[in-house]
Amino acid sequence: MNIHPNLIYSMSGIIGFLVLSTATNGILKWRFPTRNFNEVSQRIKSWWILAGLFFLALLSTQKIAIVFFGLISFLALKEYFSIIETRRADRRVLFWAYLAIPLQYSLVWYEWYNMFIIFVPVYMFLFLPLRMVLIGDTDGFLKSIGTIQWGLMMMVFCLGHYAYLLVLGSDGNPNGGGPALVLFLVMTTQLNDVAQFLWGKTLGKRKIIPKVSPGKTWAGMIGGVATTTLLSCAVGPFLTPMSWQMSLFAGLLIGLCGFIGDVVMSAVKRDLGIKDSGALIPGHGGVLDRVDSLMYTAPVFLHFMLYFYY
């Protein structure tokens, strides 16, 4: 796979940004030795590792990158199945749900788009209840099949769209092909998370949905979406086929979808009575805490690209 120079420049930019955060954090620690910076330090350290793994996957071959995204789906689905209530009778159903991951990602591998887009929402949707019926435990049947299918849709179907972006090729995007689209989307979505958090911390007063997520404020949301849109305008023409006007529109979409993904996962965690979905990523929580917004932006951005450019 030829690596487009724009991909390298953008990655260098992100690394520069991480260097800056690490330095700022170091200076703050030195200026205010009594304050506790453990969580922020841990968070930044985790960002380094996540960015490193992600860049390695994008710079390797397309097949390796597909497997990488498949592994993320597996970790996310496993974390989800570990936090929801599952009935013992569902063990075999869960096993089939896991098997959907290699199947869905092989559809990406062979670039069979039509099957990719219906496999989980149609065929797994029809198959899993059948498997559950064969086991025969009807107590809590509907709740069980509903929660399992929701997990599959989010962790396998939605996250799978990153892998599909990857294989779109350079016909529609001369600025680095699929990997550049993935980098653009992940970068804007993750910046959106950080920006929403920082704007909310500094200016946030009026809460948007206090019942679901008391930390979410109007200032955080609007500031975050604006920051994301700005970054999108700056980077879009460089990494994607979009002009700055189209990038502006895409940035708005990404900012809003990222916000929705975040609060939807907050509602799920609140329902389950937990704060973090896991402990795999120090300073961040679990995998789901990190990919919640990514799951919402991926399908929307993929269709945006397919409609206008492919």
């Binding site: 597996f74 496993k78 974390e79 570990s82 063990r91 075999r92 869960l94 096993f95 896991g278």
Partner: peptide, 8 residues
């Protein structure tokens, strides 16, 4: 049970 199903 003999079937191992992944969980954290």
């Amino acid at each position: 049970e003999a079937l191992l199903v992944p969980f954290f």
